[in-house]
Design a protein around this nucleic acid. Structure first.
Lengths: 229, 229
DNA sequence: CCCTTGCGTGACAAATGGGTAACGGGGAGG
DNA sequence: CCTCCCCGTTACCCATTTGTCACGCAAGGG
């Protein structure tokens, strides 16, 4: 998933965040000072920088400015962490340099949600996508509708994502791990049988087209092209 | 896109905003004092003035008043930037005639969304925007009227914008996040039931046509085409 | 032909999402 | 100053969705 640079001089907090972000499937890197943060960012461009406002050497504001001044790093996403007590209005105005900010104290859950939201936004604001058509199947992402033999078939949000993922990778086997990561958005521990159950539910809804969703024993699942024999 | 005059005496902040607004496709101009702002505005009428409340010479309120007093500039949109501690002034800002205000701290994204929202809202109601008609529904943007089965139905300003947004995207699912951003002009990824409530209120007013506003569980809302049934 | 391992399936409890009613703050207009 | 209306928030409830388990069949290797 995405790479996050966590910058906070409170090691306990930084490590807590680190632990949880890894659990949520992010790759992470830690920095405890502003200098270290800049060095780390230059070395390995992160997708997001989680930046505490209060640092021992440079302030978060300084770090922010340096990042924005670097043409390599200008477009990195910056999420500011600010304590509620840092109400100094003058200082807080600078947070506009950030793409989002989270006020301490925050729940880890909220932080993860915000990160995912901000990444999703920057990813692809595609307002409309052409429908994926495949033999008797048609999946319209824009309208969020799915048809089998021209007949609309209702899928739950999760089933829809699973079907979209598989159809977009026609013919390629997807392992359970891949599906978990990319459809469920977790690298975390789900029982692997969860996927089997959902595949079964999808097959039920596919009806006569159920043969298009094949099991590859010991590997994973794939959608086959009905046109290819 | 639109031309924005940014007025703030904190140069770093002003330049940060400048950089981001340009990135978002606005053309911009900077002023660091109230006098400079007035001069710049007279010279090149902006569409929006982004006005910090705290300026060294004139206060933002003074600038606001001068703008409103100038027949050339009377209709310019004014967005006040205020720090949280300046709450008292916020009200006065409105009295003088700011069109919107943004409280520091704010994220870049938030500011851009608010600007777009306010521009959209005040977009000169073109003499003839063709009404959006859809089965029993008709929404006349120009006249700001809404009809169900030929019967005029009163919508609040917010409900009207929501309905317009949905009708203009017939058949396409709009996520809550999209609606928050584009109708409300907010970036918060926070969980809120606000949208659900307004959808419910809209449905009430739709009466017999309430089925046209569908919920897509786990995704968002959409208007369906009654002709495509 | 038997054993091992992986998968399909039905059942079930827990979590989630959304509809709805009600409340309260605050602005607008009288 | 007072009242009404708009709008955001909260709380409650229900239906659906989703993760997990247990069981048994099927495939494949020896």
């Amino acid at each position: 998933m995405a790479h996050v640079l966590i910058v906070d001089d409170e090691r306990d907090l930084a490590e807590l965040i680190d632990f949880n972000l890894r659990g949520a499937g992010f790759s992470t890197r830690l920095a405890f000072t502003g200098e270290a943060a800049l060095a780390a960012a230059r070395e390995q461009s992160p997708d997001v920088v989680l930046l505490d406002l209060m640092l021992p050497d440079l302030s978060g504001i300084e770090v922010c400015r340096h990042l924005r001044a670097n043409s390599q790093l200008r477009d990195v996403l910056i999420v500011m962490l600010t304590a509620k007590s840092e109400e100094g209005d003058r200082i807080r105005g600078f947070e506009v340099g950030a793409d989002d900010y989270v006020v301490k104290p925050f729940s880890v859950r909220e932080l993860v949600l915000r990160l995912k939201a901000i990444l999703r936004r920057s990813a692809a604001p595609k307002d409309s996508t052409p429908p994926l058509a495949l033999g008797p199947l048609r999946l319209d992402v824009t309208a969020h509708r799915f048809y089998v033999d021209g007949q609309e078939t209702s899928l739950t949000a999760l089933e829809f994502r699973l079907m979209e993922h598989l159809m977009a990778r026609l013919g390629r086997v997807q392992t359970r791990e891949q599906l978990l990561e990319e459809v469920w958005g977790l690298s975390s521990a789900l029982e692997t049988r969860t996927i089997d159950t959902h595949v079964m539910r999808l097959r039920d809804k596919l009806g006569s087209a159920r043969a298009l969703l094949e099991t590859v024993r010991g590997v994973g699942y794939r959608i086959v092209d009905p046109a290819a024999g």
